[in-house]
Design a protein around this nucleic acid. Structure first.
Lengths: 339, 339
DNA sequence: ATGAAAGCGCTAACAC
DNA sequence: GTGTTAGCGCTTTCAT
């Protein structure tokens, strides 16, 4: 393996010094065009490739940003990453990816690893397991940009990009009410993560605003999955006063609800069903599913721009900013009650 | 912002030299336990965090690997990335992510960027636009590991992990034949990328092996999308001798085929439908879709292990290795013809 | 068991 | 317009 060429090789070749080469390569105006041209040609000829490590060590900036997400297997996160990478690449940044897999230990390790790699900042969505957020605090202590998206934490005073989940819950509920449903059940999960709580509160508020009774027994707290959806629906169907609509904590759970309803011949929109997050499949199942879109791409681009604003000092930890995106109601067959 | 602590700070604090600190931190056996303990404590107390940039500059290894994929929006790639990251993280590597967005120009830039970032190697799946692969050659010239997955190129002599796409095409076709279908159409795309070609050849071979006539007019070459699926199905339905089954180039296209068939009252499995890639939604649509699973997770872990083998010199460019995964037939309702 | 010192490749303050 | 030189933080050879 041949030795890699450095600016020293170029300098030697041209009988000039490395500083001239460095300046020429970086387009300094103090360098003559002739020299620039010679340097560029020689660099090309020697197949020179800059070592960003060295320049980063010197400058203290790596132009690399860490992104921590629970898992890229979840389409929502993969989609956010897609947008973040797209925007930041166009601004000269590379993306170091780290998955927490919903584990606090992994997440702690991720922050540590990324900081050791000298990333210029971190964009993260915290794991379900994360109750203590002190590991993120270290990023702030180093005065490096930290942007949170979707899953935030009250103890963490950092800029964020989230969805208005209260509104999302309210919207879903109101939509069902508008469609003529009156006895609305909810299959969801209990969690320290803000979003589930907010959606639930939105649900309660919408009921109240429309003079509908909130009933504890219509709310099933469990996990979020197809299986949990089936289970929740089954439980609601056994009530004396069976709900005429069910909101599920996410689209997978909604899918489970639909399956159970179809099996028991309560085919939606006979009983209305709403999900959250607008997964790819939701448009394609039968009946296709009304849901609340999470705006993953928007969330990604906004997160990236927030990071850039912090880099430019337009947003700081003292002058922070929280972007709250409007949820988007996607109306499909599963809530199409004819009244 | 306070200055970051370095090993010099620790050395000064303890009245020892940086070399001792460095060795202590790296667990050299020549350093006394007492010194190690003192160093560890002082590091902790001063909130020391190693600068990997500096050590990488010295050692020439970054423990970072570049991953280039068309797009994380496509679940297959997000899933492969998930597995790659998981395996390599556990082996001390970080992942630098780069999306080509199916653009050759982006891909060229990606390789360049990653090499400048001094990655220890690259795992990639090439873009649809990539006809010339010389940019990847540079990785090989630097004698750094390059592993290709799923989408490879004949001109690129590098280890790879792919699916047996000939077999996948054969398998899909044979499955339909076994189910009693005889006039099998194919809605696919023309492309320099090997996989589409291979699937098509598998389709032809299966027909031949079962004494079924191959008919040009039953094959529709277009794009791959829901829309293309509808279009392809419509075209096949207009044939004098309408096919009794349709294979689509991917699951999205298959979905389009199904939609068109349902609209025209040729509801599958009346006319059988097969897809490729087992997208999340394929299990949930009605009728749910028989398809060929791409083993994304297996592909990711195998790619990661291949990379590690190259790092360890067990696989080299002269002694290369190609892993070909067995496709997996996922049988569902869309091919359930009762004979 | 520890120290001294060179050097990884690049940048920039300071000269001329 | 270009050269000199120190230094970013760490590793490692050679000495002791």
């Amino acid at each position: 393996m041949k030795k890699k060429t450095t600016i020293y090789d170029i300098a030697r070749e041209l009988n000039i010094t490395v500083s001239t080469v460095s300046r020429a390569l970086n387009g300094f105006s103090t360098i003559s065009d002739a020299t620039k041209k010679a340097v560029a040609e020689t660099a090309e000829r020697l197949n020179y490739s800059p070592n960003k490590l060295a320049s980063s060590l010197k400058s203290g900036r790596t132009n690399t940003i860490g992104v921590i997400v629970p898992s890229t297997e979840v389409h929502f996160f993969a989609s956010v990453i897609h947008s973040i990478e797209h925007v930041l690449k166009n601004n000269g940044y590379n993306i170091l990816l780290y998955q927490s897999n919903e584990s606090l230990e992994n997440e702690i390790n991720g922050v540590k690893t990324l900081l050791e790699a000298q990333v210029d900042g971190i964009i993260a969505s915290i794991s379900l397991e994360t109750n203590d957020v002190s590991h993120f605090q270290e990023i702030i202590n180093q005065n490096k940009p930290l942007v949170l998206f979707d899953r935030t934490h009250a103890d963490l005073k950092a800029p964020s990009v989230t969805l208005d989940d209260f509104k999302a819950g309210y919207m879903a509920t109101k939509h069902l009410i508008d469609k003529g449903y009156r006895k609305i059940g909810f299959v969801t999960t209990h969690h320290q993560i803000q979003i589930f709580n907010d959606r639930f509160k939105g649900y309660q508020a919408a009921l109240k605003d429309h003079d509908l009774e909130y009933e504890d027994k219509r709310v099933i707290f469990g996990g979020l999955s197809i299986k949990d959806g089936r289970y929740g629906a089954a439980k609601l169907l056994r009530l004396e006063d069976v709900p005429d609509a069910i909101i599920a904590g996410d689209d997978f759970t909604a899918l489970g609800v639909i399956k159970k309803l179809k099996e028991t011949n309560n085919i939606p929109p006979e009983i209305g069903v709403m999900g959250f997050s607008n997964e790819t499949f939701s448009a394609f199942i039968t009946p296709n599913l009304s849901t609340i879109d999470q705006k993953s791409n928007k969330m990604g681009t906004e997160s990236a721009h927030m990071f850039l604003k912090m880099i430019n000092g337009k947003v700081t930890y003292n002058k922070t900013e929280h972007i709250v995106l409007e949820p988007l109601l996607v109306e499909r067959q599963s809530t199409g009650k004819k009244d």
